[in-house]
Design a protein around this nucleic acid. Sequence first.
RNA 1: GUGGAUAUAGCUCAAUUUGGUUAGAGCGUCGGACUGUGGCUCCGAAGGUUGCGGGUUCGAGUCCCGUUAUCCACCCCA
Length: 418
Amino acid sequence: MRFRAVKGTSDVLPGESWRWQYVESVIRQQAERFGFKEIRTPIFEETALFVKGTGDTTDIVQKEMYTFTDKGQRSITLRPEGTPPVIRALLEHNLLKESQLAKVYYLAPMFRYERPQAGRLRQHTQFGAEIVGSAAPQADVEVIALLFFTLQELGLAGLKLRLNTLGCPKCRPQYREKLVEYFRPKLSDLCEFCNDRFARNPLRVLDCKIDQNKFDDAPEMGQFLCAECHEHFRAVQDNLKAIGIPFVLDKKLVRGLDYYTRTAFEVVSEHLGAQDALGGGGRYDGLAEDLGGDPTPGVGFGSGIERYLLAMKNQGVKIPEEKRLDIFIASMGNEARLKGMELCLQLRQKGYICEQELLDRSLKAQLREAGKLNARYVALIGEDEIRKNVVTLKDMDGHSQQELPFGMMIQQIEKLKK
RNA sequence: GUGGAUAUAGCUCAAUUUGGUUAGAGCGUCGGACUGUGGCUCCGAAGGUUGCGGGUUCGAGUCCCGUUAUCCACCCCA
């Protein structure tokens, strides 16, 4: 017990990896149904990509990045979130010139130096999707739908979609100004967090859990929205209703990334602890331009697989079971082991899941092992079988067994499996 | 970065009101009962520097200090 996994990281052990594989397979299936193609970007990027993209006033950039200098004196950062790298890749490879629209998804690890907690790790895995090139409200709803229906397909219940609009560069500054005017005289009356947020991002003060009941008369974004933003928000809601995704409007939902414009959303689960967001995202119409590309609208989300798994466990979701071991080959003696090796390979080539004894244990122990592995059949080869050139095929469910000539074994299995 | 709780076998936990001498159990592992037949039952075995370092004491798993890790919450987010 010398070494341990680094703080905030965890191992997915053989006994649980099938859960991950199941979730991953559902995700890929859903993403493909929605017409998204996978994109894989490096796990590290030039630090400046996140400083510009994610935003230098965000907590992520200010205190949560794994940043280091490589041997070529480059400042490198382990990606804390997926969107800036995706936009960088789309721009770098001119994919937005090849076609107007890109629909991509990723399923990849993210890194943030945070204090670990229930549902929060320093390395976590995100499923995210982006639609770049469309300013249409249908695009917003398309990514929301992908997230929502994927969660539903996984059997998760008690989901809540929270929705808000943050306006655009045309209308948000006026709102922000009004909000600053509103808060400034109250600051001495507000908690330290409020004061902190006020300095960095006044919109986030609304989010305070301690003082938010003091803000009942605060100005609302809705009153300041420009006509286009208003129309967009309305259309997003209409489209959500059209496909039956329930949502609640949450004027306090602001989100911590600088690049969001217009739509912001979050899906939370009642089966999680304090970190209850399964996923969140929004529209980022200015990001591509910020990263040196042509002005290009975009919308997307990120969601945490570890939280999916946690919510599924807490909710008691049943996951389809692993494939059962078809046959375990129990052998005794050198000659039998050779035969067993040969048989095992033949069965595997036929597509059966097949294991053989690797510890040279007693027959009893081998059968116990087969029972523990939940094998359907055991092929038993010992001195008797070698002498008679047969194999004893034992049915572990039916408690019966029969001797078969070696050559007949596979045919018999195929017959029984039907 | 702040706060609270916790740390004993592979896992989950015991260990007496206020410290007392060979640190226990269940599960799991391995073996036996059944010399070539799993699950159930019974018997047995292996497995511990009580997170680490200091201190108090005749004596520390137990009390004190430090440290590290884990969990939970704040902050923030997935």
